[in-house]
């Protein structure tokens, strides 16, 4: 749970600077490996925000998820899937593999490298979140044109 978690909190307005230590689930490999979506919170419009870890095979997993949602007949207005990609994500993945090292060393390595990469790429994450926010706003307008009209 690394950059999607950060992106989710940026989207929700929980953080606006690289301050990751207080994010619940940050660098928690058990959550990352579980495969279950992790609920982060609700945005001001009542949309529920989740994160999901796919490990190294992001393209394969992403394609499978999109296909899965398609065969279930779910439209974008019900479930919006957003990939969060950053340079250095493989470094983060590699660092996460060190988490098995004993004495807390693995966890420290994981956090050290994750903090470095995510701090460096924080502006990119913010840009991706901004694009996502605009997309969500567009979807809301399409789904509720009357409520979005001026003066309504």
């Amino acid at each position: 749970m690394h950059h999607p978690l950060v992106a989710a909190h940026v989207y929700l307005g929980t953080i606006n600077a690289p301050d990751f230590a207080r994010l619940g689930g940050y660098c928690e490999m058990s959550l990352d490996n579980s495969g279950y979506p992790l609920e982060i919170g609700n945005d001001p419009h009542g949309n529920q925000v989740y994160t999901l870890g796919l490990g190294r095979l992001i393209d394969v997993g992403s394609r499978a998820i999109h296909d899965f949602v398609r065969i279930l007949g779910i439209e974008e207005g019900e479930l919006l899937l957003q990939e969060i990609r950053i340079p250095g994500e493989l470094d983060i993945w590699a660092a996460s593999k060190a988490s098995w090292l004993p004495g807390g060393m693995g966890s420290r390595i994981n956090r050290l490298i994750s903090n470095y990469v995510l701090t460096r790429e924080f502006p990119l994450i913010q840009r991706q979140v901004s694009a996502l926010t605009r997309h969500v706003t567009r979807l809301r307008k399409e789904m509720n044109p009357c409520s979005m009209a001026p003066g309504a």
Binding site: H3, S34, Y36, N47, Y50, T51, E89, V136
Partner: peptide, 24 residues
């Protein structure tokens, strides 16, 4: 398989409006 009944940290009741999921 891998669907134990009860809480496993992720799901919540359906909300109103789009659900947004960021994933890597």
């Amino acid at each position: 398989e891998d669907y134990p009944s009860g809480d496993h940290g992720g799901a919540s009741p359906p909300g109103c409006g789009p659900r947004v999921s960021g994933h890597n």
